[in-house]
């Protein structure tokens, strides 16, 4: 099942996704409006709390608006990675194009990977819009940002979440709907991964659960590198944790996807949603 990805195939998938998404202009506009509305909402929530939240946010520069904006923006990578592989299969099933794709000599693993790239590019665009709006209108201060450590964390985050996303796609191949993994990791990460508040405010039992979520380490490190300008050395514990998650989940996800694909081809359910 080794993917046969070439630059030409990757670009073909990107072009396809760009053209399809560009044909839904209203959806793009509403997405931008929802980003703006989310930024404004959290700006006023931050204003309401003012310095009261500062004691819990000392490790992140003390400003709630910067904390939450980065949390919301970067947790988008988790949604993209967890959902993109599953969506790649279910959208092709819905379009009825999966048969035509499976019929071609391009491997399904290549289709899966190439179909997810657009989601990551679009998520990156959303992150830039979030940060740009925060900087332009609401005094978001990223003057100390360390770009290289942020990019390393971002790459590791995408890899570790993609492994979970592929694992999740295996469930979709077999059960079609009701993927427990996505529900478990996505739900728990949004609540306990430190998107809206630092995990230090959680009861100790819940804090322990958050240590098992890759998002916790991603947000911790990306906040430190963007707000405080932390170097790679300073965020090494988070980097190693994400490497550990990737090493644990990637082989498992590849094995489960191979098994699920074989089963779906055997029972003839690959092509139906």
């Amino acid at each position: 099942m080794k993917p046969d990805i070439s630059l030409r195939k990757l670009l073909a998938f990107l072009k396809r996704d760009l053209l399809i998404n560009a044909s839904y202009r209203a959806a793009f506009l509403f997405d931008l409006i929802s980003i703006l509305s989310s930024v404004v909402t959290f700006f006023f929530i931050a204003k309401l709390f003012g310095g009261k939240a500062a004691e819990h946010l000392a490790d992140y520069g003390g400003d709630y608006f910067s904390f939450v904006l980065i949390g919301i923006a970067f947790s988008g990578y988790m949604s993209a990675a967890m959902g993109s592989f599953t969506e790649a299969i279910s959208e092709e099933q819905a379009y009825g194009t999966l048969e035509a794709i499976v019929l071609s000599p391009t491997k399904i693993s290549t289709v899966l990977i190439c179909s997810s790239i657009w989601k990551f590019i679009f998520t990156s665009f959303r992150v830039i819009v979030y940060l740009f709006l925060g900087w332009l209108f609401f005094d978001l201060n990223l003057s100390r940002a360390n770009l290289s450590s942020s990019l390393i964390i971002l790459a590791l985050t995408i890899i570790s979440f993609s492994a979970l996303g592929i694992l999740s796609a295996s469930f979709t191949l077999i059960f079609k709907r009701g993927d427990p993994l996505n529900w478990l990791f996505y739900g728990a990460s949004r609540l306990l991964g430190g998107v809206y508040f630092p995990i230090a405010v959680l009861p100790i039992g819940l804090q322990k659960i958050s240590f098992f979520l890759p998002l916790t380490y991603c947000l911790e490190a990306v906040r430190k590198s963007l707000i405080l300008g932390s170097s790679v050395k300073e965020i090494l514990p988070q980097i190693l944790s994400l490497v550990f998650f990737s090493a644990l989940f990637f082989p498992l996800s590849i094995f489960s996807f191979k098994s699920a694909l074989k089963k779906a081809q055997k029972n003839g359910s690959l092509l139906y949603s």
């Binding site: 396809r16 399809i20 194009t97």
Partner: peptide, 11 residues
């Protein structure tokens, strides 16, 4: 294919 599916309708 026999069905009209199998192509991207927006392309």
């Amino acid at each position: 294919f026999s069905e009209e599916k199998g192509f991207y309708w927006r392309l």
